[in-house]
């Protein structure tokens, strides 16, 4: 249950963000700051994890296919 608190804490923290001007967002636009830095590799990793573990899903709409390794 303690781990469940983590997203709640993060979301509460989001309520207290500081103003960031457009010219201050260079670091946020860096390639190593992307939510998914390598979509092609992530797709393979997700495909393997979905086929090897009993849970799946995330902040996407998923795809289709068996993945029955």
């Amino acid at each position: 249950m303690k781990l469940l608190l983590l997203p709640c804490v993060l979301l509460l923290a989001a309520c207290s963000s500081a103003p960031v001007q457009p010219w201050e967002r260079g670091n946020l636009a860096r390639p190593d700051m992307a939510w998914d830095t390598d979509p092609l590799h992530s797709a393979m990793r997700d495909h393997v994890n979905v086929s090897k573990e009993g849970s799946s899903g995330g902040l996407n709409t998923g795809g289709g296919g068996c993945g029955c390794y």
Partner: peptide
Amino acid sequence: NAFIALTQVMNAGWQLQGGLFTG
């Protein structure tokens, strides 16, 4: 499958994302 998410820029070097998903 469906999801909702909120992404927040916290400062010039930090951003957070939280969300719920269901299937």
